[in-house]
Every structure is written in structure tokens, then in C-alpha cells.
């Protein structure tokens, strides 16, 4: 992948992200923020690659901490979003 190809992905994804968020009911603001936050934990992939392939102790140690932090973000983020939405659906009944 060249830099320009990566840049193409970046620009197109920015437009998609811009377009999919339209009118949202106020009570979904926080769950959506939480769900998007869980997706930003995608940085876990980078952490996994670096932690696993680190050729020095320092790189592996940094990668280890990064994997722990990113996994907290991913697992916690999806669970909290789910619990939030659960409560909204119960309140609606």
C-alpha cells in the first residue's frame, strides 16, 4: 500500500463517517458516542502487531501496555454501550 492509496481510504472513509450520522434522537447521543469509542479501539490491531513482533524488550513492553489499554477500550466500550441501550429499551416498555 502506498501513501496515496492510504490517503484515498482516509478521505473516502471521512465522507462516509460524515454522511452516516444524520438525525439522532437525543437519548441515543451517549450510546452512539460509546459505540463509536469502542470502534476507535481498533488501534488494538496495531498494538497486537507491535506487541507480537517487537524485536526489542522495550518495543514488546510498550506493545504489551498498548494491548492492555486498547483491549480495555474495546471490551469495556462494547459492553457499556450494550448496557446503556438495554436500559433505554427497558425504560421504553
Amino acid at each position: 500500500m502506498t501513501f496515496v492509496q492510504n490517503l484515498t481510504l482516509f478521505v473516502l472513509a471521512a465522507f462516509v463517517g460524515y454522511e452516516i450520522i444524520t438525525k439522532i434522537p437525543t437519548n441515543l447521543h451517549t450510546p452512539l458516542m460509546s459505540g463509536a469509542n469502542a470502534i476507535s479501539g481498533i488501534t488494538l490491531l496495531g498494538s497486537v502487531v507491535v506487541a507480537g513482533s517487537g524485536s526489542t524488550t522495550l518495543a514488546t513492553a510498550l506493545g504489551f501496555v498498548a494491548v492492555v489499554m486498547a483491549t480495555v477500550n474495546v471490551v469495556g466500550g462494547y459492553l457499556v454501550s450494550h448496557f446503556m441501550l438495554d436500559q433505554f429499551s427497558q425504560r421504553g416498555k
Partner: peptide
């Protein structure tokens, strides 16, 4: 990473 990160950045 680029696609998902940018999605979250923009949205």
C-alpha cells in the same frame, strides 16, 4: 485501522 479510525474521527 485507517478506515475505522477515520469513520470514528468524522462521525
Amino acid at each position: 485501522l485507517i478506515v475505522a479510525g477515520t469513520l470514528v474521527g468524522a462521525s
